[in-house]
Amino acid sequence: MSAIFVILEENGGHISRISWEALAAGTALAEQTSLPLHAVVIGSSTEALAAEAAAKQVAAVIRIEHALLNAYTPDGWTSALHQFLTANPATYVIFPHTYQVRDYAPALAARMNQVLIGDVTGIAAGPVFTRQLLQGRLNGSYKHASDGPCFVSVQAGAFRADALAVGSASVTTFAPTIEPSQIRTKPGAPFRASAQTVDLSSAPLIVSVGRGIKEADNLPLVQDLAAALGAELAASRPICDNGWLPMERQVGSSGQTVAPKLYLAVGISGAIQHLVGMKASQCIVAINKDPDAPIFEVADYGIVGDLFEVVPALTEAIKSAK
C-alpha cells in the first residue's frame, strides 16, 4: 500500500527540530489523505534515531542503513532513498528544507521523473502547497500533477513540532545496495570559521543593516544609531558578503540566531534566510522604503521611508530622549 514517508535528519545525535516539523507536515497530509504516515531515518547506525521517531505517532519507522551511509553524501543518500522508494511506493515524500535536503532531494526527485516542491510554508486542502517567490515578496501556490510520488520539503518554522502526538511504532530496517565506487564525492569534517569575538545572541538591543545602506561609506549612519541606543550592530548577508562588516555580525540561517529585546532592521527586505535568525526577537522595528517589503510581515513597528532621512532623525530623537 502507498504511504507518506517523512525523511528525518540527524543533528547532534538526535532527530533535528526541523525534521519534527516535517513530521508535523506529514501528519497534516495524513489527516487530509487518510494515508499511513511512515518516518524514515538514514545512516550507518540508526538505532537510537529510529527509537526517537518510534516514540511519535507514526504507523511505522524505517531504518535505511548501510556502512557507506556513515557520512552524508548526495550520491549515497540519493541511491539509498531511490532504492527504498522503488521498493516502497510513496504518494508523498516529505523532507525538512535543510542544506542537506537541498543538496540531494532535487536529484532524487529527478531520478524518479519528479520535481521537488521545495521550501513549502503551508499545505492547504487539495493539497495545495504554498512557497515563497521573489525572496518572500510573493507567495505561490503549487500543485503536483503526476502519478508518481510527490516530493515536498518544508521551511523551518512553518509547521509546529510541539503538536506531535506520542506513540509506539514498529521499526523495520531496509538495506540498500551501495558500492564504494558509487560515492563520488569525499566530504570533510564540518568546521567553523575563525573564533567569534562578538556574541550577538546575548545583546539586548540590536541595530541591523541591510543592502538599503547602498555603500560601505554610509555605515556610520547606522553605527551612530547603534551607539545612541547602546546597541550591537548586526547585518544581513550581502553586507558581510561585500566585506563591509565581518561575517560574525551576520544574522540569519548561515549566520547567528538572535532574540534581543529590540531588533531594529534598517534597509533589510526580510528574506526567509534572514527572518529565521531574528523573528523570535521581542520587538521588531523595520525601516524600509518599500511598504510591501516582507520584513513588515514580522515587524511590530514600521517606518516606511528613506533610511537616509529616517535614521539620522531617529538617532537625534533617541539622543534627546535620553
Binding site: N113, L133, G140, Y142, K143, H144
Partner: peptide, 10 residues
Amino acid sequence: TVTLGQIALP
C-alpha cells in the same frame, strides 16, 4: 509534474 497556480501577496 509540478504547476504554479495563483500568486498572491503574503
